[in-house]
Amino acid sequence: MAYLIHIPTFTDNRGHLSVLDEAIPFDIKRIFYIYGVDNSARGGHRHHTTVQAAICIQGSCTIINDNSDVTEHFEMDTPEKCLILETQDWHVMTNFSPDAILLVMASTSFNAKDYIFEPYQHSA
């Protein structure tokens, strides 16, 4: 199940410093970021083996997550918030602000065969 963690951040009169090295609960194998998004949705998948950590380091966006039991909306609106997405978490990112930058760290390197695009089928 997806869950939020707090990124340790140190603030003084010079600004903010956020530290990720001890906060992310897995070894990072891949880092990418998404920005300049129009009204499109991004994501729309889950993974066989990859766990991800998502931080909106600028602006804001919404990550909608479905783990087959619960659908949750996570408002990613501060760089101190990090959403951990487990393998069962089918997720889509929406509502990007014009200045949004979404940083994503993954537990595995890219592998096209790791993606599951079909959303969960829920009973009506």
Rank of each mutant, 00 (worst) to 15 (best):
M1V: 13
A2T: 13
L4T: 14
F10Q: 05
F10M: 12
T11V: 15
D12S: 07
R14I: 06
G15R: 02
G15V: 11
L17V: 15
L20I: 08
L20D: 00
D21Y: 05
E22F: 06
E22Q: 12
A23F: 01
I24A: 10
F26R: 04
I28Q: 04
R30L: 15
I31L: 15
Y33K: 09
I34L: 15
I34A: 08
I34P: 03
I34S: 12
I34H: 02
Y35Q: 05
Y35D: 09
G36T: 06
V37R: 12
N39C: 10
A41I: 05
A41E: 15
R42C: 12
R42S: 08
G43Y: 14
G43Q: 10
G44K: 01
H45G: 02
H45I: 05
H45Q: 07
H48A: 08
T49A: 10
T49W: 07
T50Y: 02
V51E: 09
V51A: 07
Q52C: 13
Q52M: 11
A53T: 04
A54H: 07
I57M: 09
Q58A: 11
Q58I: 00
G59Q: 05
G59C: 08
G59P: 01
S60I: 02
I63P: 01
I63M: 12
I64D: 04
I64W: 11
N65I: 14
N65Q: 14
D66F: 02
D66Y: 04
D66S: 03
S68D: 15
S68I: 00
T71V: 15
E72L: 13
E75L: 15
E75W: 10
E75A: 13
M76V: 08
M76H: 10
D77T: 10
D77V: 03
D77S: 14
P79F: 09
K81T: 06
C82S: 04
L83W: 05
I84G: 02
L85E: 02
T87C: 11
D89T: 13
D89R: 12
D89P: 11
W90M: 04
V92Q: 13
T94H: 11
N95F: 02
F96P: 07
D99L: 05
D99V: 04
A100Y: 07
I101V: 14
L102T: 02
V104A: 08
V104H: 01
M105K: 04
M105G: 04
S107V: 10
T108G: 05
S109A: 12
S109E: 09
S109R: 06
S109V: 14
N111C: 14
N111K: 08
A112V: 13
D114F: 02
D114R: 03
D114P: 09
Y115D: 05
I116D: 03
F117K: 13
F117Q: 08
E118C: 01
P119Q: 01
Y120M: 00
Y120D: 00
Y120G: 00
Y120Q: 00
Q121R: 09
Q121M: 11
S123Y: 11
S123W: 09
A124C: 11
